[in-house]
Nucleic acid binder design. Structure first.
Lengths: 126, 126
DNA sequence: TTCGAATCCCTACATTTGTAGTTGCCAAAT
DNA sequence: ATTTGGCAACTACAAATGTAGGGATTCGAA
């Protein structure tokens, strides 16, 4: 697997928008993100360029000939990479302490706890 | 709560060393970290200075009058902050998807699964 | 056909981060 | 007293990040 690009925090917002819906043009993306990040369109374009350089997204073209952008890497893969790196940095790479931490620091509903326990069991025999 | 300082990746290594054992002088720290990070002592000093500016560590003095460094913030609090930020960035702030992700992507032993389930149960009734 | 809005391509610039090097000073060993 | 070995204080400098601005081009509407 080609090692995944390093996606910064701002860039991640763009990626999320594209994973959510793509292709999108720069101005569409700007509008999509306007509510959350109040970025100037040039800011969005700069980030898009950087993401292309990093190989995280590709370009296409819509019917009117305007450039469009779409993910070149899968979200799940990026989430795994970010997760690995976080786990490494903060929990020395160990999953259990991480899970313990979040289990203890989150208010989960009984239903969620039930689901999680099920997933834990499944993680064993598969 | 005094909002916690933003600790970078390299800085985090220093903090870990200090949480593990403090106070330490700059040269002690350099030696402590030598096996992992092969940093020049000046690098360590620069990072220490930045951590002081950020309010993450404080200084003291040992019996020989040499400056020592020690944490000014608790590890658990920083871990919580980093965890929050990570969960926000990657999982939109939701704990369950995060837990599901790590539960599925880690090879846990039966024993660990047992412990985790117990912790999940406890997280409910407390 | 001309003007303005949308697109693109460059350039800019302050911060943060990673990683030191340089210099000055002081106390301990010759 | 001189040298030397630490320690402290500054300075350095490139890459990555956040956040745009300006100029050229083009396409559709007036």
């Amino acid at each position: 697997m080609p090692s995944l690009p390093d996606i910064s925090e701002s860039e991640w917002s763009l990626m999320e928008a594209l994973w959510e819906s793509s292709p999108q043009t720069a101005s569409e993306l700007t509008k999509t993100l306007r509510p959350t990040m109040n970025w100037a369109e040039n800011t969005v374009r700069t980030l898009l360029t950087r993401l292309i350089d990093k190989g995280a997204i590709k370009t296409g073209e819509n019917s009117s000939g305007t450039r469009t952008y779409l993910p070149a890497v899968k979200r799940e893969a990026c989430v795994r990479a970010e997760g690995e790196s976080f786990m490494q940095r903060i929990f020395g790479g160990a999953a259990k302490p991480l899970l313990v931490h979040f289990a203890q620091n989150s208010k989960l509903t009984a239903e969620e706890v039930r689901e999680l326990k099920k997933i834990l069991d499944q993680s064993l025999n598969s």
